[in-house]
Nucleic acid binder design. Sequence first.
DNA 1: TTTGATGCAAATCGTTTGCACCAGA
DNA 2: TCTGGTGCAAACGATTTGCATCAAA
Lengths: 149, 149
Amino acid sequence: MISAQRSLSSSGGRMTPQRRMILETLESLTDHPTAEQLYVVVHARAPEINRSTVYRTLNWLETEGLVSSRRFNGDQRAGQFDPRPACDHHHFICTECDLVVEFEHPLIDTIIADFQRDHALEVCEASIVLRGVCPACRARLTQTAREAA
Amino acid sequence: MISAQRSLSSSGGRMTPQRRMILETLESLTDHPTAEQLYVVVHARAPEINRSTVYRTLNWLETEGLVSSRRFNGDQRAGQFDPRPACDHHHFICTECDLVVEFEHPLIDTIIADFQRDHALEVCEASIVLRGVCPACRARLTQTAREAA
DNA sequence: TTTGATGCAAATCGTTTGCACCAGA
DNA sequence: TCTGGTGCAAACGATTTGCATCAAA
């Protein structure tokens, strides 16, 4: 979760009502919304807030390191915003319903260390994306397959 | 590398001169080109091939599982195409020059197994993205920093 | 012959930007 | 006050699509 007020007031930008509202909305959402999805919620609550402001605020938050943008799927159009920094967790995505599950795993550090040793490249960030099918979608899929047979 | 002729003739689509040219060009490139970059090369060799055809061919190849599209960076606009399936290798990206280095690591299987056990979710694909700085860019950066001081 | 692929241009989608105005520090 | 943020609309880049034509199987 972002500790919005504090982190932000100590950094470069100004705290405005629009930014506060966008931040509060982002924190209230449990998933990884696109800019448009976030805009829809923000706009419903505060119709005077413009779409550009949402985009600008998200970009600003990303440069501040408070959120990270993701593209879990190579062919998806819109970026999704993760209300946490990029560096400290990984993701599972259901290919059917886009459910996102976050996780951590200590072995990533071993992988990074091995890679750096083998390739003489300096790694500063790592992310794992797992893709698969969640139980609900699995049930639906097998049900559909059974009906077809 | 794609074994183009064989894999494709056995699958759904038709082999046309355009598709052959696009495939050969994609195989000849060693990096992970965007659709536009690929189009430029293809178009230089065969000016009659249209941009739409490149996009359509890439989408088709992806549904056939012969290439995979990537978005290594959350905020980058264009998708990059990897002339290999998504499942069998991982990537390091230099944040300065976009150099891509591919690698494999056996521990990913342990991570997948642990995740599946802990979350009761079925994983069918995994990819690791490491981000960092390559030696050339590191040298340039430290040089620039030294000059500034 | 028939179905699917192509070229072209226009449309679409997600995102950014120029500019005049406004407000937080 | 003055720098930086906002709303608006227009621009933009990447990608897709409708349609008439064409060619692989």
